[in-house]
């Protein structure tokens, strides 16, 4: 993972387009990885995810999603605590407590029914919360849209991922594959809409990613950007 980022830095230097977007100085390199990802997606991820969506009952897919989401809540709670958002962090751990017990190891999201809402946090957002700029846009092999900041965050997310500790190895691999398949299946509709909406998919997805991350760092309440500004839109949030 870290190796990939280092590699991106190296390759990035020689791939700068003349008319580059200031947020995306490595566009040439990124577009290459993007094309690679699309090939892999078309050949493997999308067909598997489609088969999963069409072959597995929605009820069961919900249980699977909830199970992984419950594990994720532990880290959302840790990240909320690291950002000093202790009320949210408390809610996250309350969710884990209720869902792991009443929700039968997380397969039922009873906490949401009780009105304790799920949050969205990760290490990349924690860095952003403490003022780290996002750095250049970066497309990671397989993992897709990121930035230098979010890439480092993602490396930490993966490093601390409890699924990585599961043994035997083939059980761990099956769990990871199931989680990825489910995640891709949830994005099937979104990727179809992206396909329709975008003139240039690469640009549309990049801009959506950067807007989305900015919104997440500010927990859905980013300072409003002025439309009529002459300055380039979507400047660095901080």
């Amino acid at each position: 993972m870290k190796l990939l980022i280092a590699l991106a830095f190296l390759l990035g230097g020689c791939a700068t387009a003349p008319d580059a977007d200031p947020r995306d100085p490595w566009e040439g390199f990124n577009r290459g990885v993007y094309r690679f990802n699309e090939v892999v997606d078309e050949a493997v991820a999308k067909p598997v995810a489609t088969a999963y969506r069409d072959g597995v009952h929605a009820e069961i897919r919900d249980r699977v999603r909830n199970f992984f989401a419950n594990i994720g809540d532990v880290f959302i709670g840790v990240n909320n605590a690291l950002q000093g958002k202790f009320r949210e962090s408390f809610e996250d751990f309350a969710r884990v407590t209720f869902n792991s017990t009443l929700g039968l190891l997380g397969i039922h999201d009873v906490a949401s029914d009780m009105g304790i809402e799920k949050h969205n946090e990760d290490f990349g957002q924690t860095f952003g919360w403490w003022g780290a700029g996002q750095g250049p846009y970066l497309v990671l092999p397989i993992l897709g849209s990121s930035t230098v900041r979010d890439g480092v965050g993602l490396a930490l997310d993966l490093y601390t991922d409890p699924l990585g500790e599961v043994r035997p190895i083939d059980v761990r691999n099956s769990l990871l594959a199931l989680r990825l398949t489910g995640a891709r299946a949830d994005l099937l509709e979104a990727s179809r809409i992206l396909e329709q909406a975008a003139l240039d998919k690469y640009v549309f997805q990049r801009d959506a990613y950067l807007q989305r991350r900015r919104s997440l760092v500010y927990d859905g309440r980013p300072p409003r950007e002025r439309y009529e500004d002459d300055a380039p839109v979507n400047r660095e949030p901080r």
């Binding site: 801009d207 807007q211 989305r212 950007e225």
Partner: peptide, 15 residues
Amino acid sequence: GGVSLVANYRTEFNG
């Protein structure tokens, strides 16, 4: 989800 549809077209349109 925090993504403005209108703003998302702007880079592309201006480019």
